[in-house]
């Protein structure tokens, strides 16, 4: 009876597996196919939480909690931080650099999945003992016993690995200033020497019509100047262009004025 119970799981667990397993696969697919990195990260976090539930269902109570704390709590939040740091200009280009690479990659993935599933299907997995005996003294106690006896050397090595990783991350991201910071005088002298943009950058907005910061200011000839808009807005492509509208309005106004006053155009008059 106990042997039979170990062979198949309870109906509740089967239901849980099919419902949450479907959601996990959907989450994994969304991770791969979502366009924005933030959406990918959130889908992956959902998949990881479901995997934590599966660990709990499989009797790995310690790992289930560690999965939630370490993966969804720490690692995914680290991912989100980096997405926010890198975010603005890091749009994934949809242009293919190698022709047909996407379809070939999808084909490879499909073939790989078929191979793995076929391999598992052909393997003789006749042994189902269940964790009842191994977990009899408590899952955490059982793990601790193994960790500090059989695997103690590997455990100490992971300590060294974690410290090395922390130092490595600091070395990679921390930039030591090797030269003195330039003073304001030196910076201004450099600007004069290079001979570009001595005065402050021109202001955005088209006066008398718009003064929003996302509208490029117009040059005397009526063309918009990209320089007037904030760099971040430029890289996001969020500049509103009203130059043609303004020019058309100006033309219509001149036309009306001309009609009413019945006199030659202002340019000709000034010549």
């Amino acid at each position: 009876m106990t042997q039979l119970a170990a062979y198949t799981t309870s109906t509740g667990e089967a239901l849980q597996f099919w419902v949450l397993g479907t959601v996990a696969v959907i989450g994994a697919l969304c991770t791969v196919f979502m366009k924005k990195a933030v959406h990918s990260a959130l889908c992956l976090a959902g998949t990881m939480i479901i995997l934590a539930v599966f660990y709990l269902a499989n009797g790995a109570y310690f790992l289930g909690i560690v999965q939630i704390v370490v993966y969804t709590g720490a690692i995914m939040m680290l991912f989100l931080f980096v997405v926010m740091l890198v975010g603005v200009t890091a749009a994934d280009s949809l242009r293919e650099t190698i022709k047909g690479q996407r379809w070939l990659a999808a084909l490879c993935g499909l073939g790989f999945a078929v191979l793995l599933v076929g391999g598992i299907g052909n393997a003789s997995l006749k042994e189902f003992n269940g964790l009842g005996q191994a977990n009899s003294a408590g899952n955490v106690q059982g793990l601790a016993e193994l960790l500090f006896t059989k695997y103690v050397f590997a455990f100490e090595l992971t300590g060294a690995l974690l410290i090395t990783a922390a130092v490595g991350a600091m070395v990679l991201t921390h930039r030591e200033r090797t030269e003195r910071a330039r003073t304001q005088r030196e910076l201004s002298e450099q600007r004069v020497r290079e001979g570009k943009h001595l005065p402050p950058l021109p202001a955005p907005g088209v006066y008398a019509r718009h003064n929003a910061v996302d509208i490029a200011g117009l040059l005397p000839d009526g063309t918009p100047s990209e320089l007037t808009v904030n760099k971040t807005l430029r890289s996001r492509g969020q500049i509103r262009d009203v130059s043609t509208e303004a020019l058309n309005d100006l033309k219509a106004l001149e036309q009306r004025a001309e009609d009413r006053l019945e006199r030659p155009r202002p340019e000709e008059a000034s010549k």
Partner: peptide, 24 residues
């Protein structure tokens, strides 16, 4: 559970091949 793991692994491998954003 093993079949699910194999499926997730294959999806992840496909993602590594397809995507070009380093974070993804």
């Amino acid at each position: 559970y093993l079949y699910l793991a194999a499926l997730l692994f294959a999806i992840g491998a496909t993602g590594v091949l397809i995507r070009r954003n380093a974070i993804v």
